[in-house]
Design a protein around this nucleic acid. Sequence first.
RNA 1: GCGGACGUAGCUCAGCUGGUAGAGCUCUCGGUUGUGGUCCGAGCGGUCGCGGGUUCGAGUCCCGUCGUUCGCC
Length: 477
Amino acid sequence: MGQPFKIDARDGQARAGVLRCAHGDVRTPAFVPLASNASVRGLLPGEVAELGYDMVLGNTFHLFITPGADYVAAAGGLHRFMGWDGPIVTDSGGFQVFSMGHGSVADEIKGRRDGRRSMVHEISEDGVRFQSYTDGGERFMGPETSMQVQAKLGSDIALAFDECTPFHADRTYTMRAMERTHRWLDRCIAWHGEHAPASQLLYGIVQGGVHEDLRRESTDYVAQAAVDGIAIGGSLGQGKEQMREVVGWALRGLPDERPRHLLGIGDVDDILHAVAAGIDSFDCATPTRLARHGTALVPDPTRRWRLDLTKGASAGSDEPIATGCPCPACRSHTRGYLHYLARHDELTGARLITLHNLTFMAELMAGLRAAITAGALAAYTDKVLAGEAPDSASDSCAQLAGHNCPNELQAVRTSACCRAGTARCRRSAAGRCRGRRARRRCRRHRRRAARARRPRSPSGPRAAAGTGPSGGCARCA
RNA sequence: GCGGACGUAGCUCAGCUGGUAGAGCUCUCGGUUGUGGUCCGAGCGGUCGCGGGUUCGAGUCCCGUCGUUCGCC
Protein backbone atom coordinates (compact mmCIF):
# COMPACT_ATOMS: atom_id res chain seq x y z
CA MET A 1 0.00 0.00 0.00
CA GLY A 2 1.08 3.56 -0.37
CA GLN A 3 2.56 5.67 2.37
CA PRO A 4 -0.33 6.24 4.81
CA PHE A 5 1.34 9.05 6.72
CA LYS A 6 1.84 12.50 5.32
CA ILE A 7 3.81 15.12 7.20
CA ASP A 8 2.49 18.58 6.46
CA ALA A 9 4.65 20.70 8.73
CA ARG A 10 7.69 20.44 10.95
CA ASP A 11 9.03 22.41 13.86
CA GLY A 12 12.34 21.04 15.06
CA GLN A 13 11.82 17.33 15.55
CA ALA A 14 8.09 17.78 15.86
CA ARG A 15 5.77 16.95 13.01
CA ALA A 16 2.18 17.75 12.15
CA GLY A 17 0.49 15.59 9.58
CA VAL A 18 -2.28 13.27 8.59
CA LEU A 19 -2.48 9.54 9.01
CA ARG A 20 -4.70 8.06 6.34
CA CYS A 21 -6.69 5.10 7.61
CA ALA A 22 -9.38 2.90 6.10
CA HIS A 23 -12.08 4.75 8.01
CA GLY A 24 -10.75 8.25 7.63
CA ASP A 25 -7.89 10.58 8.44
CA VAL A 26 -6.23 11.12 11.78
CA ARG A 27 -4.74 14.53 12.32
CA THR A 28 -1.45 14.37 14.20
CA PRO A 29 -0.12 14.89 16.77
CA ALA A 30 -3.13 13.07 18.10
CA PHE A 31 -4.39 11.95 21.45
CA VAL A 32 -6.36 8.71 21.17
CA PRO A 33 -9.00 8.14 23.84
CA LEU A 34 -9.34 4.63 25.20
CA ALA A 35 -12.29 2.48 24.32
CA SER A 36 -10.81 -0.79 25.52
CA ASN A 37 -14.16 -2.50 25.85
CA ALA A 38 -15.61 -1.00 22.67
CA SER A 39 -16.76 2.12 24.49
CA VAL A 40 -15.26 5.39 25.61
CA ARG A 41 -16.77 4.98 29.04
CA GLY A 42 -19.71 7.26 29.54
CA LEU A 43 -19.72 8.90 26.12
CA LEU A 44 -21.50 8.31 22.87
CA PRO A 45 -19.36 7.83 19.76
CA GLY A 46 -20.83 10.97 18.25
CA GLU A 47 -19.80 12.96 21.29
CA VAL A 48 -16.23 11.70 21.04
CA ALA A 49 -16.12 12.78 17.41
CA GLU A 50 -17.64 16.16 18.24
CA LEU A 51 -14.91 16.76 20.78
CA GLY A 52 -12.46 16.61 17.91
CA TYR A 53 -11.14 13.09 18.10
CA ASP A 54 -10.43 11.23 14.90
CA MET A 55 -9.50 7.84 16.37
CA VAL A 56 -10.16 5.70 19.44
CA LEU A 57 -8.30 2.71 20.84
CA GLY A 58 -9.92 -0.66 21.35
CA ASN A 59 -8.26 -3.53 23.11
CA THR A 60 -7.61 -6.95 21.70
CA PHE A 61 -7.21 -8.50 25.11
CA HIS A 62 -10.45 -7.20 26.57
CA LEU A 63 -12.51 -7.97 23.50
CA PHE A 64 -10.89 -11.39 23.18
CA ILE A 65 -11.95 -12.26 26.74
CA THR A 66 -15.41 -10.85 26.25
CA PRO A 67 -17.46 -10.81 24.09
CA GLY A 68 -14.94 -12.53 21.78
CA ALA A 69 -13.75 -11.65 18.30
CA ASP A 70 -16.36 -13.79 16.58
CA TYR A 71 -19.15 -12.05 18.45
CA VAL A 72 -17.87 -8.67 17.27
CA ALA A 73 -17.27 -9.97 13.76
CA ALA A 74 -20.82 -11.32 13.64
CA ALA A 75 -22.03 -7.85 14.56
CA GLY A 76 -20.27 -6.50 11.51
CA GLY A 77 -16.88 -5.67 12.99
CA LEU A 78 -15.82 -3.34 15.76
CA HIS A 79 -16.83 -0.13 13.97
CA ARG A 80 -20.41 -1.16 13.48
CA PHE A 81 -20.51 -2.96 16.82
CA MET A 82 -19.69 0.16 18.80
CA GLY A 83 -21.16 2.69 16.38
CA TRP A 84 -17.92 4.49 15.63
CA ASP A 85 -17.22 4.94 11.96
CA GLY A 86 -13.85 6.64 12.29
CA PRO A 87 -10.43 5.04 12.58
CA ILE A 88 -9.78 2.56 15.38
CA VAL A 89 -6.42 1.35 16.61
CA THR A 90 -6.41 -1.88 18.59
CA ASP A 91 -3.81 -2.59 21.21
CA SER A 92 -2.45 -6.09 20.82
CA GLY A 93 -3.04 -7.45 24.30
CA GLY A 94 0.63 -7.85 25.13
CA PHE A 95 0.53 -5.13 27.73
CA GLN A 96 -2.56 -6.56 29.41
CA VAL A 97 -0.94 -9.96 29.69
CA PHE A 98 1.96 -8.23 31.32
CA SER A 99 -0.23 -6.29 33.70
CA MET A 100 -1.97 -9.45 34.81
CA GLY A 101 1.38 -10.88 35.63
CA HIS A 102 2.28 -8.01 37.86
CA GLY A 103 -0.87 -6.84 39.58
CA SER A 104 -0.86 -3.11 39.16
CA VAL A 105 0.51 -1.94 35.87
CA ALA A 106 1.14 1.56 37.00
CA ASP A 107 3.12 0.59 40.05
CA GLU A 108 5.08 -2.18 38.46
CA ILE A 109 6.01 -0.36 35.29
CA LYS A 110 7.42 2.43 37.41
CA GLY A 111 9.29 0.03 39.58
CA ARG A 112 7.39 0.93 42.70
CA ARG A 113 6.32 -2.47 43.81
CA ASP A 114 7.05 -6.12 43.53
CA GLY A 115 4.82 -8.29 41.47
CA ARG A 116 1.82 -9.93 43.03
CA ARG A 117 0.05 -13.16 42.38
CA SER A 118 0.36 -13.75 38.69
CA MET A 119 -2.46 -14.75 36.42
CA VAL A 120 0.06 -15.58 33.72
CA HIS A 121 0.71 -19.30 33.68
CA GLU A 122 3.46 -19.43 31.11
CA ILE A 123 5.23 -17.25 28.60
CA SER A 124 6.83 -19.33 25.87
CA GLU A 125 8.02 -18.91 22.33
CA ASP A 126 4.49 -19.71 21.18
CA GLY A 127 2.80 -17.08 23.26
CA VAL A 128 1.19 -16.64 26.66
CA ARG A 129 -1.07 -18.94 28.65
CA PHE A 130 -3.02 -17.00 31.22
CA GLN A 131 -6.06 -17.11 33.41
CA SER A 132 -9.13 -15.21 32.30
CA TYR A 133 -10.23 -12.55 34.78
CA THR A 134 -13.87 -13.25 34.01
CA ASP A 135 -14.33 -16.97 34.40
CA GLY A 136 -10.95 -18.13 35.67
CA GLY A 137 -10.46 -20.42 32.70
CA GLU A 138 -7.14 -20.71 30.94
CA ARG A 139 -6.68 -18.87 27.68
CA PHE A 140 -3.88 -18.60 25.20
CA MET A 141 -2.72 -15.68 23.16
CA GLY A 142 0.21 -15.55 20.79
CA PRO A 143 1.21 -13.34 17.89
CA GLU A 144 -1.10 -15.14 15.47
CA THR A 145 -3.99 -15.11 17.95
CA SER A 146 -3.64 -11.40 18.47
CA MET A 147 -3.40 -10.69 14.77
CA GLN A 148 -6.38 -12.89 14.06
CA VAL A 149 -8.49 -11.18 16.72
CA GLN A 150 -7.52 -7.77 15.41
CA ALA A 151 -8.34 -8.84 11.87
CA LYS A 152 -11.76 -10.02 12.98
CA LEU A 153 -12.33 -6.80 14.87
CA GLY A 154 -11.43 -5.00 11.67
CA SER A 155 -9.45 -2.20 13.28
CA ASP A 156 -7.71 0.35 11.07
CA ILE A 157 -4.43 -0.11 12.89
CA ALA A 158 -3.26 -3.33 14.52
CA LEU A 159 -0.40 -3.43 16.99
CA ALA A 160 2.05 -6.29 16.99
CA PHE A 161 1.90 -8.68 19.95
CA ASP A 162 4.66 -7.85 22.38
CA GLU A 163 5.85 -8.70 25.84
CA CYS A 164 6.02 -5.64 28.01
CA THR A 165 8.78 -6.26 30.52
CA PRO A 166 8.49 -4.67 33.93
CA PHE A 167 10.92 -2.19 35.40
CA HIS A 168 12.23 -4.75 37.87
CA ALA A 169 13.07 -7.33 35.22
CA ASP A 170 16.82 -7.67 35.01
CA ARG A 171 18.72 -6.78 31.89
CA THR A 172 19.06 -10.38 30.77
CA TYR A 173 15.34 -11.06 31.02
CA THR A 174 14.51 -7.76 29.33
CA MET A 175 16.88 -8.62 26.51
CA ARG A 176 15.50 -12.11 26.00
CA ALA A 177 11.93 -10.85 26.12
CA MET A 178 12.82 -8.14 23.63
CA GLU A 179 14.38 -10.65 21.26
CA ARG A 180 11.31 -12.85 21.55
CA THR A 181 9.11 -9.81 20.88
CA HIS A 182 11.15 -9.25 17.73
CA ARG A 183 10.53 -12.83 16.63
CA TRP A 184 6.85 -12.35 17.46
CA LEU A 185 6.90 -9.23 15.28
CA ASP A 186 8.08 -11.28 12.33
CA ARG A 187 5.28 -13.75 12.92
CA CYS A 188 2.77 -10.91 13.21
CA ILE A 189 3.96 -9.47 9.92
CA ALA A 190 3.77 -12.87 8.26
CA TRP A 191 0.24 -13.60 9.51
CA HIS A 192 -0.90 -10.06 8.80
CA GLY A 193 0.46 -10.12 5.26
CA GLU A 194 -1.30 -13.33 4.48
CA HIS A 195 -4.65 -13.01 6.28
CA ALA A 196 -5.44 -9.49 7.44
CA PRO A 197 -7.50 -7.03 5.40
CA ALA A 198 -5.21 -5.13 3.07
CA SER A 199 -6.43 -1.84 4.45
CA GLN A 200 -5.38 -2.64 8.03
CA LEU A 201 -2.13 -0.97 9.03
CA LEU A 202 0.33 -2.72 11.32
CA TYR A 203 2.57 -1.09 13.89
CA GLY A 204 5.62 -2.74 15.42
CA ILE A 205 6.50 -2.08 19.05
CA VAL A 206 9.90 -1.02 20.35
CA GLN A 207 10.86 -2.68 23.64
CA GLY A 208 14.15 -2.80 25.53
CA GLY A 209 13.19 -1.41 28.93
CA VAL A 210 15.42 1.28 30.36
CA HIS A 211 18.61 0.02 28.72
CA GLU A 212 20.03 2.27 26.05
CA ASP A 213 21.68 -0.44 23.98
CA LEU A 214 18.56 -2.61 24.05
CA ARG A 215 16.33 0.29 23.06
CA ARG A 216 18.63 1.05 20.13
CA GLU A 217 18.69 -2.56 19.09
CA SER A 218 14.92 -2.77 19.27
CA THR A 219 14.48 0.48 17.38
CA ASP A 220 16.76 -0.79 14.62
CA TYR A 221 14.89 -4.08 14.45
CA VAL A 222 11.44 -2.51 14.22
CA ALA A 223 12.67 0.17 11.84
CA GLN A 224 13.86 -2.38 9.30
CA ALA A 225 10.68 -4.41 9.59
CA ALA A 226 7.82 -4.16 7.11
CA VAL A 227 5.48 -2.20 9.38
CA ASP A 228 3.41 0.89 8.68
CA GLY A 229 4.20 2.60 11.93
CA ILE A 230 6.17 2.25 15.12
CA ALA A 231 4.92 2.27 18.69
CA ILE A 232 7.16 2.73 21.70
CA GLY A 233 6.21 0.52 24.62
CA GLY A 234 7.60 -1.17 27.68
CA SER A 235 8.86 0.30 30.90
CA LEU A 236 9.93 3.88 30.34
CA GLY A 237 11.52 4.18 33.75
CA GLN A 238 10.61 5.48 37.16
CA GLY A 239 10.36 9.18 36.54
CA LYS A 240 9.77 11.73 33.85
CA GLU A 241 13.44 12.46 33.33
CA GLN A 242 14.18 8.82 32.69
CA MET A 243 11.14 8.48 30.48
CA ARG A 244 12.30 11.32 28.27
CA GLU A 245 15.72 9.77 28.01
CA VAL A 246 14.33 6.36 27.11
CA VAL A 247 11.95 7.83 24.53
CA GLY A 248 14.89 9.70 23.07
CA TRP A 249 16.85 6.46 22.67
CA ALA A 250 13.88 4.72 21.10
CA LEU A 251 13.29 7.54 18.61
CA ARG A 252 16.86 7.71 17.41
CA GLY A 253 17.14 5.92 14.12
CA LEU A 254 13.43 5.60 13.41
CA PRO A 255 12.46 6.17 9.79
CA ASP A 256 11.22 9.72 9.45
CA GLU A 257 8.31 9.02 7.17
CA ARG A 258 6.54 6.50 9.36
CA PRO A 259 4.18 7.49 12.19
CA ARG A 260 5.32 7.04 15.79
CA HIS A 261 3.01 6.26 18.65
CA LEU A 262 3.95 6.52 22.33
CA LEU A 263 2.00 3.92 24.23
CA GLY A 264 0.28 4.77 27.49
CA ILE A 265 1.54 8.31 27.94
CA GLY A 266 -0.81 11.15 28.59
CA ASP A 267 0.35 13.69 31.18
CA VAL A 268 0.32 17.17 29.70
CA ASP A 269 4.00 17.86 30.18
CA ASP A 270 4.94 14.42 28.88
CA ILE A 271 2.95 15.00 25.72
CA LEU A 272 4.58 18.39 25.21
CA HIS A 273 8.03 16.87 25.50
CA ALA A 274 7.24 13.83 23.38
CA VAL A 275 5.70 15.87 20.58
CA ALA A 276 8.77 18.08 20.53
CA ALA A 277 10.85 14.91 20.30
CA GLY A 278 8.90 13.66 17.30
CA ILE A 279 6.00 11.54 18.56
CA ASP A 280 2.84 11.64 16.46
CA SER A 281 0.22 9.98 18.61
CA PHE A 282 -0.60 8.97 22.18
CA ASP A 283 -3.11 6.91 24.06
CA CYS A 284 -3.64 7.04 27.77
CA ALA A 285 -6.13 6.00 30.42
CA THR A 286 -5.51 9.04 32.57
CA PRO A 287 -7.91 11.67 31.18
CA THR A 288 -10.91 9.35 31.21
CA ARG A 289 -10.02 7.33 34.30
CA LEU A 290 -9.22 10.40 36.39
CA ALA A 291 -12.53 11.87 35.30
CA ARG A 292 -14.44 8.85 36.54
CA HIS A 293 -12.74 9.24 39.88
CA GLY A 294 -13.54 12.93 40.14
CA THR A 295 -10.38 14.64 38.93
CA ALA A 296 -10.54 17.30 36.23
CA LEU A 297 -7.68 18.47 34.07
CA VAL A 298 -6.94 22.16 34.51
CA PRO A 299 -4.31 24.55 33.14
CA ASP A 300 -2.27 24.51 36.34
CA PRO A 301 1.20 22.95 36.15
CA THR A 302 1.76 23.52 39.87
CA ARG A 303 -0.98 20.98 40.52
CA ARG A 304 0.17 18.65 37.78
CA TRP A 305 -2.77 19.86 35.69
CA ARG A 306 -5.20 18.22 38.07
CA LEU A 307 -8.12 19.37 40.17
CA ASP A 308 -9.59 16.74 42.46
CA LEU A 309 -13.21 17.78 42.64
CA THR A 310 -13.98 15.33 45.43
CA LYS A 311 -11.90 17.41 47.84
CA GLY A 312 -13.58 19.74 50.23
CA ALA A 313 -12.06 22.74 48.48
CA SER A 314 -14.61 22.44 45.69
CA ALA A 315 -17.59 22.12 48.03
CA GLY A 316 -20.03 24.94 47.49
CA SER A 317 -17.91 26.56 44.81
CA ASP A 318 -19.85 28.40 42.13
CA GLU A 319 -16.91 28.53 39.73
CA PRO A 320 -16.62 26.32 36.67
CA ILE A 321 -13.74 23.86 36.43
CA ALA A 322 -12.02 26.23 34.04
CA THR A 323 -13.24 29.63 32.94
CA GLY A 324 -13.61 29.82 29.19
CA CYS A 325 -13.64 26.07 28.67
CA PRO A 326 -16.30 25.23 26.09
CA CYS A 327 -17.22 21.82 27.52
CA PRO A 328 -20.72 21.14 28.91
CA ALA A 329 -19.41 20.74 32.45
CA CYS A 330 -17.85 24.20 32.42
CA ARG A 331 -20.61 25.89 30.44
CA SER A 332 -23.48 24.78 32.65
CA HIS A 333 -22.19 23.50 35.95
CA THR A 334 -20.22 24.58 38.99
CA ARG A 335 -17.41 22.88 40.83
CA GLY A 336 -19.77 22.66 43.77
CA TYR A 337 -22.25 20.61 41.79
CA LEU A 338 -19.57 18.40 40.28
CA HIS A 339 -18.09 17.95 43.75
CA TYR A 340 -21.41 16.67 44.95
CA LEU A 341 -21.87 14.39 41.95
CA ALA A 342 -18.37 12.97 42.25
CA ARG A 343 -18.74 12.42 45.99
CA HIS A 344 -21.84 10.38 45.44
CA ASP A 345 -20.56 8.44 42.44
CA GLU A 346 -23.27 9.81 40.22
CA LEU A 347 -22.82 8.70 36.64
CA THR A 348 -23.58 12.19 35.45
CA GLY A 349 -20.53 13.45 37.28
CA ALA A 350 -18.24 10.89 35.67
CA ARG A 351 -19.71 11.74 32.31
CA LEU A 352 -19.41 15.51 32.69
CA ILE A 353 -15.83 15.37 33.92
CA THR A 354 -14.94 12.92 31.14
CA LEU A 355 -16.35 15.40 28.63
CA HIS A 356 -14.28 18.12 30.23
CA ASN A 357 -11.03 16.16 30.33
CA LEU A 358 -11.35 15.04 26.75
CA THR A 359 -12.13 18.61 25.75
CA PHE A 360 -8.99 19.69 27.53
CA MET A 361 -6.88 17.07 25.76
CA ALA A 362 -8.46 17.84 22.39
CA GLU A 363 -7.64 21.51 22.76
CA LEU A 364 -4.12 20.68 23.82
CA MET A 365 -3.57 18.57 20.72
CA ALA A 366 -5.27 21.07 18.40
CA GLY A 367 -3.02 23.74 19.84
CA LEU A 368 0.05 21.58 19.24
CA ARG A 369 -0.93 20.93 15.63
CA ALA A 370 -1.53 24.61 15.02
CA ALA A 371 1.70 25.58 16.74
CA ILE A 372 3.78 23.17 14.70
CA THR A 373 2.14 24.39 11.52
CA ALA A 374 2.88 27.96 12.53
CA GLY A 375 6.43 27.12 13.55
CA ALA A 376 5.66 28.24 17.10
CA LEU A 377 5.85 25.01 19.06
CA ALA A 378 8.29 26.30 21.65
CA ALA A 379 6.14 29.32 22.41
CA TYR A 380 3.03 27.20 22.72
CA THR A 381 4.77 24.67 24.93
CA ASP A 382 5.99 27.45 27.17
CA LYS A 383 2.53 28.89 27.48
CA VAL A 384 1.02 25.58 28.48
CA LEU A 385 3.84 24.95 30.93
CA ALA A 386 3.19 28.42 32.33
CA GLY A 387 -0.39 27.44 33.09
CA GLU A 388 -2.29 29.08 30.28
CA ALA A 389 -5.24 27.29 28.80
CA PRO A 390 -4.02 24.98 26.07
CA ASP A 391 -5.97 26.42 23.17
CA SER A 392 -4.07 29.50 22.06
CA ALA A 393 -1.19 28.76 19.74
CA SER A 394 -0.72 31.95 17.82
CA ASP A 395 0.37 34.44 20.46
CA SER A 396 4.02 35.13 21.02
CA CYS A 397 5.84 33.23 23.67
CA ALA A 398 6.18 34.70 27.11
CA GLN A 399 9.27 33.00 28.35
CA LEU A 400 8.62 31.33 31.63
CA ALA A 401 11.72 31.70 33.70
CA GLY A 402 13.32 28.43 34.58
CA HIS A 403 10.54 26.18 33.37
CA ASN A 404 13.13 23.78 32.08
CA CYS A 405 15.04 23.65 35.33
CA PRO A 406 15.12 20.05 36.49
CA ASN A 407 14.59 21.15 40.07
CA GLU A 408 11.42 22.96 39.26
CA LEU A 409 10.13 20.06 37.26
CA GLN A 410 10.96 17.94 40.22
CA ALA A 411 9.00 20.26 42.44
CA VAL A 412 6.01 19.97 40.19
CA ARG A 413 5.95 16.27 40.68
CA THR A 414 6.73 16.27 44.34
CA SER A 415 4.77 13.17 44.88
CA ALA A 416 6.57 11.09 42.30
CA CYS A 417 10.06 12.18 43.10
CA CYS A 418 10.16 13.35 46.67
CA ARG A 419 7.82 10.90 48.22
CA ALA A 420 10.49 8.43 49.13
CA GLY A 421 12.54 11.20 50.65
CA THR A 422 9.64 12.44 52.68
CA ALA A 423 8.93 8.99 53.98
CA ARG A 424 12.53 8.55 54.92
CA CYS A 425 12.58 11.87 56.66
CA ARG A 426 9.54 11.05 58.68
CA ARG A 427 10.94 7.77 59.74
CA SER A 428 14.31 9.07 60.66
CA ALA A 429 12.66 11.88 62.59
CA ALA A 430 10.77 9.27 64.54
CA GLY A 431 13.97 7.44 65.21
CA ARG A 432 13.15 3.91 66.12
CA CYS A 433 9.84 3.89 64.27
CA ARG A 434 10.63 1.42 61.57
CA GLY A 435 8.03 -1.04 60.55
CA ARG A 436 4.36 -1.19 61.24
CA ARG A 437 4.46 -2.46 64.77
CA ALA A 438 6.98 0.09 65.84
CA ARG A 439 4.99 2.91 64.33
CA ARG A 440 1.84 1.75 66.03
CA ARG A 441 3.65 1.62 69.24
CA CYS A 442 4.82 5.10 68.78
CA ARG A 443 1.36 6.32 68.08
CA ARG A 444 0.24 4.67 71.24
CA HIS A 445 2.95 6.43 73.13
CA ARG A 446 1.82 9.68 71.67
CA ARG A 447 -1.74 8.95 72.69
CA ARG A 448 -0.73 7.98 76.14
CA ALA A 449 1.21 11.17 76.50
CA ALA A 450 -1.78 13.13 75.29
CA ARG A 451 -4.03 11.34 77.71
CA ALA A 452 -1.67 12.02 80.56
CA ARG A 453 -1.66 15.70 79.67
CA ARG A 454 -5.43 15.82 79.58
CA PRO A 455 -6.90 17.12 82.83
CA ARG A 456 -8.52 14.21 84.54
CA SER A 457 -10.26 13.93 87.80
CA PRO A 458 -7.57 13.06 90.33
CA SER A 459 -10.06 11.45 92.64
CA GLY A 460 -11.01 7.86 92.11
CA PRO A 461 -8.88 4.81 92.35
CA ARG A 462 -8.02 4.44 88.67
CA ALA A 463 -6.46 7.82 88.33
CA ALA A 464 -4.24 7.21 91.26
CA ALA A 465 -2.78 4.07 89.82
CA GLY A 466 -2.82 4.62 86.09
CA THR A 467 -1.36 8.01 85.25
CA GLY A 468 2.35 7.32 85.19
CA PRO A 469 3.97 5.67 82.20
CA SER A 470 4.61 2.59 84.21
CA GLY A 471 2.53 3.29 87.29
CA GLY A 472 1.91 0.03 89.03
CA CYS A 473 2.06 -2.09 85.92
CA ALA A 474 4.31 -5.09 86.32
CA ARG A 475 4.82 -5.49 82.57
CA CYS A 476 5.71 -1.89 81.96
CA ALA A 477 8.08 -1.78 84.86
C1' G B 1 -44.23 -4.10 86.49
C1' C B 2 -41.10 -8.71 85.61
C1' G B 3 -37.35 -11.27 82.67
C1' G B 4 -33.52 -11.39 78.70
C1' A B 5 -30.08 -9.12 75.20
C1' C B 6 -27.28 -4.96 73.98
C1' G B 7 -24.67 0.21 74.94
C1' U B 8 -16.68 0.40 72.53
C1' A B 9 -14.30 5.70 66.63
C1' G B 10 -19.00 9.63 62.55
C1' C B 11 -21.32 4.38 60.95
C1' U B 12 -21.32 -1.27 61.42
C1' C B 13 -19.01 -4.06 64.79
C1' A B 14 -14.29 -7.23 67.06
C1' G B 15 -12.03 -7.33 71.76
C1' C B 16 -10.80 -15.09 74.28
C1' U B 17 -10.30 -17.01 81.37
C1' G B 18 -8.74 -8.80 83.86
C1' G B 19 -2.52 -6.84 81.59
C1' U B 20 -0.31 -0.59 76.90
C1' A B 21 -8.20 -0.03 73.02
C1' G B 22 -8.77 -2.78 67.22
C1' A B 23 -10.98 -3.72 62.13
C1' G B 24 -14.00 -2.40 57.93
C1' C B 25 -16.49 1.69 55.98
C1' U B 26 -16.71 7.17 56.25
C1' C B 27 -13.59 11.51 56.56
C1' U B 28 -8.62 14.20 55.43
C1' C B 29 -4.04 13.97 52.56
C1' G B 30 -0.77 11.56 48.88
C1' G B 31 -0.31 8.43 44.65
C1' U B 32 -2.57 5.77 40.70
C1' U B 33 0.53 6.97 32.12
C1' G B 34 -0.88 0.63 26.05
C1' U B 35 -8.70 1.73 31.66
C1' G B 36 -11.64 -3.83 36.21
C1' G B 37 -17.04 2.37 37.53
C1' U B 38 -10.73 0.97 40.32
C1' C B 39 -6.54 0.17 43.13
C1' C B 40 -2.38 1.35 46.65
C1' G B 41 -0.27 4.29 50.78
C1' A B 42 -0.62 7.50 55.04
C1' G B 43 -3.36 10.33 58.57
C1' C B 44 -7.49 12.28 61.77
C1' G B 45 -10.81 10.20 65.04
C1' G B 46 -12.43 6.54 71.61
C1' U B 47 -13.82 9.47 79.52
C1' C B 48 -15.16 1.66 76.12
C1' G B 49 -23.38 4.98 78.25
C1' C B 50 -22.91 7.07 83.43
C1' G B 51 -21.63 6.45 88.82
C1' G B 52 -19.58 3.45 92.48
C1' G B 53 -16.84 -1.11 94.03
C1' U B 54 -13.01 -5.28 93.83
C1' U B 55 -7.78 -5.36 92.07
C1' C B 56 -0.97 -3.44 91.56
C1' G B 57 -4.08 -3.06 87.11
C1' A B 58 -11.15 -3.05 84.70
C1' G B 59 -13.75 -2.44 77.91
C1' U B 60 -13.51 -7.21 80.53
C1' C B 61 -15.56 -9.02 87.27
C1' C B 62 -19.46 -7.01 91.10
C1' C B 63 -23.41 -3.27 92.52
C1' G B 64 -26.37 0.72 91.09
C1' U B 65 -28.27 3.87 87.34
C1' C B 66 -29.74 5.73 82.41
C1' G B 67 -30.79 4.35 77.35
C1' U B 68 -32.10 0.91 73.19
C1' U B 69 -34.52 -3.51 72.06
C1' C B 70 -37.12 -8.26 72.51
C1' G B 71 -40.39 -11.34 75.40
C1' C B 72 -44.10 -12.01 79.33
C1' C B 73 -47.99 -10.03 82.53
